[in-house]
Nucleic acid binder design. Structure first.
Lengths: 329, 329
DNA sequence: CTGTTAGCGCTTTCAT
DNA sequence: ATGAAAGCGCTAACAG
């Protein structure tokens, strides 16, 4: 790599590397004349400071890592996009890693980031890697948990009121359909899935409804499991008239399932936790619990930057309330 | 950052840093006994080598940058996800940047990556930053252009036969509807938009159809412009009976527009260049030109790794053929 | 105001 | 087979 260095600039400008460094970082004293000249030279040589060397020297990388379970999910990318913007404004870089919901890959990703000496980790985790995360925190790295809690890890948090929103949605459905409805749950290692199920159960209890195994399908947040859920419910003695789905991918899968079975997409009322991009186009009976990724991204960025600036004062827990928008009443 | 270093390991193991480095990189000679012991100590201390220092020393970062115009677009993320996997397998990190289709942000992103001393750049560009890209190539950085060509930049390429697929689609529509159709074009700075329009025009010429300004709407690849296109066409004297849309976002916008106007979504036949996730669910008259992001990602990764391994032999140009799948005939 | 110098963590000759 | 030492590009005392 014939990259051009601070030395080249110094030589070309006829000054010392220290001076170049000073104009680069606009600290220390340097005469206006020299500054201008050096800046000229830097432009001319198309000089880009080597951030590796700088980070090494300063013992801070000005880099933040974010590990997401699914980078093709617009919800997570919506969050990440805002975070990146905000961090960039403050001179931090954001490194994305995709765990694909796989704890092993997640561990690898975190270790990688650790090696890159990230100053902060933003994690929407699988819930299975508490150990290394605790290690990270202990070693002084800022950790912000996003969307999902990890058992035993105590740190800053930006989450949603999953239970509350689920309860509201289920309450509504129960009032309308009694026990003639189905719930599609997510993987119980993931905190959001647990909480959404809890909320649903609370509503059931409150309504004193009769619920059995036939009312529940244990999915895994994947599209495929949404299709399977559809088959499960539709092949039952008395198929449900309404569905509560714990996440957007499963909702989509459920509709695909209906399509495959040749059903009218409006034959079942559905409430989905999490947005489906095209929702308004294909069903009049699909309601959405909106999560507002942009708002969450702002909160994550704000907390992360605050911590990085050492303005921390105890751990922070930010809980957002998703908004159920009923499509049908 | 109280990070633990090679020195700590050396001390704890009672050997020199050189020895630790040797076991780390499994090169040079080191007795099995010592190796095992050192490995023990590393585990015990939870040592993670500082990649910054390593990169600095070796003058290679083992890092690849990718700049995408829209990270919430599943097409690009589908490509990126594969690329990341393949690179990771070979020990390279992938740094994502989002230009949000903004040339200025794109420039900033590229400069940032340059500062990080990336060894390769994968770029789906706005088409406006030829200068810096040429600079990068000259300085020895591998550059692979993805999806979009940049005028004046000669390097490896992974693209699609935009013109051909557009021509096929338009040929089909023209045969069915003659001039009673509308074309939604993209921003003409972007090569894919130009090529798709070219293909469409070729088909028009071939069919000797009468086309005027009322048959064309100049969009910008955004959802919003799809809505505007819908308004434009539907308020015309004789609204078109079919639409060719140059990208997925605009297609989606067009449907949103129809919805807003209270139209039946099946009242117009549509062909969309690029996949709409939920397409099968909401229309029987929407056909898709599929782009196969996974396949493209594999190609990008393969070429990038080949170049990185200096197995290059002239520039490579890989053209994929998108597949038009007709929904209706 | 500017230059000299030490050293960040690591790899890599060169000795031994 | 192992250690000592130089140096990657940069910043930050410390001198002057």
């Amino acid at each position: 790599m014939g990259s051009i260095t601070i030395k080249d600039v110094a030589q070309a400008a006829g000054v010392s590397t220290a001076t170049v460094s000073r104009v680069l970082n606009r600290n220390g004293y340097v005469s206006n004349q020299v500054r201008l000249h050096v800046e000229q030279v830097m432009k001319g040589l198309n000089y880009q400071p080597n951030v590796l060397a700088r980070s090494l020297k300063q013992e801070k990388s000005r880099t933040v890592g974010i590990v997401l379970p699914d980078m093709t999910n617009p919800y997570f990318m919506g969050v990440a996009r805002i975070v990146q913007q905000r961090l960039l404004e403050k001179g931090y870089h954001l490194i994305y890693m995709d765990s694909v919901e796989d704890p092993d890959k997640e561990l690898k990703a975190i270790q990688l980031l650790q090696g890159m000496r990230i100053e902060a980790l933003i994690l929407a985790g699988t819930g299975q890697n508490a150990e290394i995360v605790k290690h990270l925190i202990q070693s002084g790295t800022t950790v912000v948990l996003l969307d999902r809690i990890i058992e035993g890890v105590h740190t800053d948090l930006v989450v949603e009121d999953n239970s509350g929103a689920a309860e509201e949605a289920m309450g509504y459905l129960l009032g309308k359909y009694g026990s003639r409805l189905g719930v599609i749950g997510g993987p119980q290692q993931i905190s959001t899935a647990r909480e959404r199920l809890e909320g649903a159960q609370k509503a059931v209890k409150l309504a004193a409804a009769q619920f059995s195994e036939t009312n529940y399908y244990a999915g895994d947040y994947s599209r495929r499991s949404g299709i399977l859920a559809c088959n499960f419910f539709m092949e039952a003695q008395e198929p449900p008239e309404a569905i509560f789905s714990s996440n957007n991918e499963m909702t989509y899968g459920f509709y695909l399932g209906m399509k495959e079975r040749g059903m009218d997409l409006d034959s079942v009322e559905v409430i989905s936790f999490g947005e489906l991009d095209a929702a308004p186009l294909f069903s009049h009976r699909l309601s959405i619990i909106y999560q507002n990724p942009a708002q969450i991204g702002e909160a994550v960025a704000e907390i992360t930057l605050k911590r990085l600036a050492r303005e921390g004062t105890g751990r922070e827990k930010r809980i957002f309330t998703p908004r159920l928008e009923k499509q049908f009443s």
